[in-house]
Design a binder for these strands. Structure first.
Lengths: 225, 225
DNA sequence: CTTTAGGGTTAGACGTGTCTAAATCCGGAC
DNA sequence: GTCCGGATTTAGACACGTCTAACCCTAAAG
């Protein structure tokens, strides 16, 4: 049996691994979870002991298959909960993250199944992030691009908004930037700020680079399913 | 901020207080929570420190008003969750206790409000237990009687089934003993076993005293609401 | 009033997860 | 090839919640 905290570390490593594709360093995990480096080191000792991570001292960790499975289970819980909260309890997609973070460790397999069933086995959460399937097979990396990679004049469809800050999300929500909308890129400023017009808003919206890189678009020739 | 564990102690004391109406002894709490007496003593130190319980060393505790409010909040969470799970996620009333026990500490006030709203502010949970109101005022003790207090020939309406063992509950459920049904008392055996016929089952059912005392009936002349 | 059985509390330990301070390692700069 | 700065790990402490063993209080029996 794993503690909630261990699950949080595995989830954090999983997320970082998705982003960087490299060994994950102590300090990255520390930043992600808002703890100090020695705390991370001691937890990595325990996770290595349990063969949930592969470790090279001083050079970071990667998840073992078993560690990845645990992480996927938590991510599945998290995203199913987010989807359920928006669909059935009237939450806005910008609000669900914190609630899901608190509940994800405490639901039973039975609960998970009933929620998945109530939602007809959804494949993406309200942010457009893929929900791991019930068998917890590692999903394909669905490679899209951030809107920061496009140019003025391009028109793209938002697939995923990969931010977790509710302030940012609620701003995006209010300005028509959410999964499914079309965005016409109006300008990419030299310092990375993206200005775009949403099919879902009257006024254009400008996003600093740090936010724009979290707004993802599926590959160009992706037909609607 | 209180820990989950502290909340569990307060909930346990609250429940015991409802039953016995007396100072609650260390050993009772220990039995309720399945921990040892010294563990309870040290937790009582902390709860007293925070003025959540009134304590007389060697003679037990009672909840302070503040402690009772915390307990009511947890009980409200628990019972709302039970109601929600049966109403919206297709759980049987005999299965919901364990799930609610795990979730009750981890839902936000917002979540609580949305669930209550989705259920239209319910006043009883699926076991017939009263759900504390949102203002957390201590509810009246709704004094009913256990079916063990009746005699052969009496016909009563089940108001509450105050057991938490899922095995017992599922047995009762299968034999037609649940809140709302009518029970014709057929026999009270000398050792306390109650045999009754449910309006909701073909065969009579016999309940040992330990179970029968958990099946409650509202006061005699209670009109249906 | 005294004794005593049984429950309550104290003492001391342990595992978890966290911290700060100190020591140590790695890798890039020169 | 050596050195140094920044990151990592080690060392040691602490709060929490739990335990066992030992001690002590209360209340009931006589």
């Amino acid at each position: 049996m794993l503690s909630d905290v261990m699950e949080d570390y595995l989830k954090a490593i999983y997320r970082l691994q998705r982003e960087t594709d490299d060994r994950i360093k102590t300090s990255e995990i520390a930043a992600e979870l808002d703890v100090t480096s020695p705390t991370v080191t001691s937890m990595l000792d325990k996770l290595e002991e349990r063969e949930l991570v592969d470790r090279e001292k001083y050079r970071g960790v990667t998840l073992t298959d078993e560690g990845e499975t645990v992480a996927l289970e938590i991510v599945r819980h998290h995203r199913l909960l987010e989807a359920y909260l928006t669909e059935h309890l009237d939450y806005d997609w910008s609000e669900v993250h914190a609630e899901a973070d608190r509940l994800e460790h405490h639901i039973s397999e039975d609960f998970e199944a009933r929620v998945a069933d109530a939602l007809s086995e959804p494949t993406v959460d309200p942010h457009g992030s893929p929900i791991p399937s019930a068998d917890l097979e590692p999903p394909e990396r669905p490679d899209g691009e951030s809107i920061a990679a496009f140019e003025a004049g391009d028109v793209v469809t938002v697939a995923e908004v990969a931010d977790r800050d509710p302030e940012v999300l609620s701003y995006l929500s209010e300005h028509g930037v959410e999964p499914g909308v079309e965005l016409e890129i109006l300008e990419i400023a030299p310092f990375g700020m993206v200005t775009a017009r949403s099919s879902d808003a009257d006024e254009p919206v400008s996003l600093p680079e740090s936010v724009a890189t979290h707004v993802w678009v599926a590959e160009p020739a992706e037909p609607e399913l």
